[in-house]
Design a protein around this nucleic acid. Structure first.
Lengths: 348, 348
DNA sequence: TAAGGCAGAGTAATCGATCTCTGACAAGGA
DNA sequence: TCCTTGTCAGAGATCGATTACTCTGCCTTA
């Protein structure tokens, strides 16, 4: 019993079954136009009946297109995996690639050698384009790809390479919204736990925090600002340190949701009632936000849509051969839950 | 200015530069053997100098091997993304595939139509093998692939398709260890929050819980068992419900770490001191476990290694054309932290 | 009526790497 | 000296899809 891959159905088989030439069959299946209606339906029927699936290798060899897009995870650390962000982004990307029948090839370089091989691999045309996630500017990968003419889209504003195409959330606007909300809830002393300033999310959310306070006529005091690293632990520790220095804090903007979990836990532990003693607003609005105790008010960013948007930008570059860098900033919005909403109650 | 992909270096170019035939160049680069030392070094030098990268499409067309492995994420829900498990597994897989110069093609089918296309795509030989993650038995994908002779490895014991190759952690043994530890710490009334019984992790960890209590001569009481869904929320809610019914509980085994976060939070909220009133042991031992409050005692499972092991099994099938299903169960171990360790103290 | 135009179908070259087959040459035995 | 055996390199077919080019009719128009 020889196992024969069903994939052994080739275009020639289809053409033979439909009694046309390979060329005609190819034209029909490519939707390419000038083929008589009779032939057309014969070919389609034959392809259907035989279960024809085109051989990607052959097509790719001929067309010099790989039909696949590389997704590079440039930062394979616990921070990335502990956060649903990456998964959701990937889901958005996978979905839009799927619709276009493109393959998603994932790269997770874990050391210098991997990086080297990745560079030469990507540069030699084995993918049609690259989506770069969790990219750090110190990494030379972006420059290398750009130099080789490979279309690239990054998932956040690169701090250096400003001519890159990227998709990002409106970090600054979202943070400002968070602060405005805290002000509206009557908070008088508002602190923040920022993300790493070497990331666009960290820097921009802090900028939004500052801007909103400035606009309200009470510029941020520097000892109300702490910089964390997006982990739950840093959220907890910095909350403790903030409240030790400034017991008068009654509003807290935490620039990342994992850090916010840490903040909530620290506040509980210190006996501060949320939201009455301290109102908390977070950023990200992960699915978990609704299930924390109390549920977290958070700035929602549309992660899956960011993934889809990245893909869209990349495909536009591929289709139109248009290398003008484009930037897309997606809007954020405030989702109010109990961690910030003081419904006339007061502290025990 | 025409952009020329550097990848345009072909084997012919290398052969010409080394003044040999394509066949000889191919033999050298394949490491395949009987080539004179002079030719050999000439070819290697030329390849190096020109920056030759083989064209995968051409190779694949000729060899009928795709050089890539499909990773299917069969359950793209929030549960998967909220948990670092998937990311770590992926990292392990990526690492071992990298070493073998294989591509990782990721599939995240999100509806019926995606599933259909995925099936015909995979079945027609576009990947050399498939790693199936978060696979649910109701899904016909495994059977389809097996029928088509595509090597498959699953990331956990499938409850139905028992003839599959899979890699799993020693769930039952780990759970038993957790219970033994709680017993050793002096707990008298031990409860558990199990995972969904439709997953091997859920069912086996519950079995381990039962076994250990049985062995200790105090069979599990049914009202000390609750079944959750691996989310933080279910952990919190079931903890509340458990302690409402059985206030005498002084030991809790939570079969998943996100659920354990919920349990800790609920216990705090209810004013039960951990570990003195209730000792808690979790499963998974994610990096976060060390940073919770208090740090969680947890059963460690080697997730990255599971990814590597899956790849190893799959590659063995590919290399040896050996279709005998193999199972690998990786050991777990107990990591004791403060959530279970009663250092002679007592409740406030 | 004949030339030109055009739609629609087929022929065959092509992409790049692999690998079978063939042939050249050298060494060793009779 | 001639034949056998073995080693190593090259020639060329091959994988399957695409597509430039060619060819065949048929229709239009001067």
């Amino acid at each position: 019993m020889t196992i024969q891959r069903p994939g052994a159905v080739t275009l020639s088989d289809v053409a033979a079954a439909a009694q046309v030439s390979r060329a005609t069959a190819s034209r029909v299946l490519a939707g390419d136009g000038r083929v008589g209606a009779g032939y057309r339906s014969a070919v389609l029927a034959a392809a259907q009946r035989l279960g024809y699936v085109p051989n990607r290798a052959a097509r790719s060899l001929r067309t010099r297109r790989s039909g696949s897009v590389g997704v590079v995870l440039a930062e394979p650390s616990a921070v990335v995996f502990g956060n649903p962000f990456f998964g959701q982004l990937l889901a958005g990307i996978a979905q839009s690639l799927n619709e276009r029948d493109l393959q998603l090839t994932l790269f997770i370089p874990q050391n210098e050698r991997d990086e080297q091989r990745l560079q030469s691999y990507l540069a030699s045309g084995h993918v049609d384009g690259v989506l770069l996630t969790f990219y750090q500017d110190r990494d030379p990968l972006y420059e290398q790809l750009a130099k080789n003419g490979i279309p690239v889209v990054v998932n956040a504003r690169p701090l250096q390479a400003s001519s890159a195409s990227y998709v990002d959330a409106d970090n600054e606007g979202g943070a400002a919204m968070a602060v405005e909300h805290l002000l509206a809830e009557g908070c008088r002393t508002i602190a923040t736990i920022a993300g790493p300033l070497g990331t666009s999310a960290g820097a921009e959310r802090l900028a939004g925090f500052r801007r909103a306070l400035q606009l309200a006529g009470r510029p941020a005091e520097e000892d109300l600002i702490r910089v964390g690293d997006f982990t739950t632990r840093s959220g907890r520790e910095l909350t403790v340190s903030l409240l030790a220095d400034r017991p008068d804090i009654d509003g807290l903007f935490v620039a990342g949701e994992l850090m916010a979990y840490g903040a909530l836990s620290a506040l509980h532990r210190m006996g501060r009632a949320v939201p009455w003693d301290v109102a908390v607003v977070s950023f990200d609005d992960l699915p978990e936000a609704a299930t924390t105790d109390p549920p977290l008010t958070s700035i929602h960013q549309p992660v899956e849509q960011m993934g889809r948007e990245m893909t869209r930008l990349l495909l536009a570059q591929l289709d139109d051969d248009d290398r003008i860098p484009r930037q897309v900033i997606l809007g954020t919005h405030l989702v109010v839950r109990e961690s910030s909403h003081r419904q006339g109650g007061s502290s025990a």
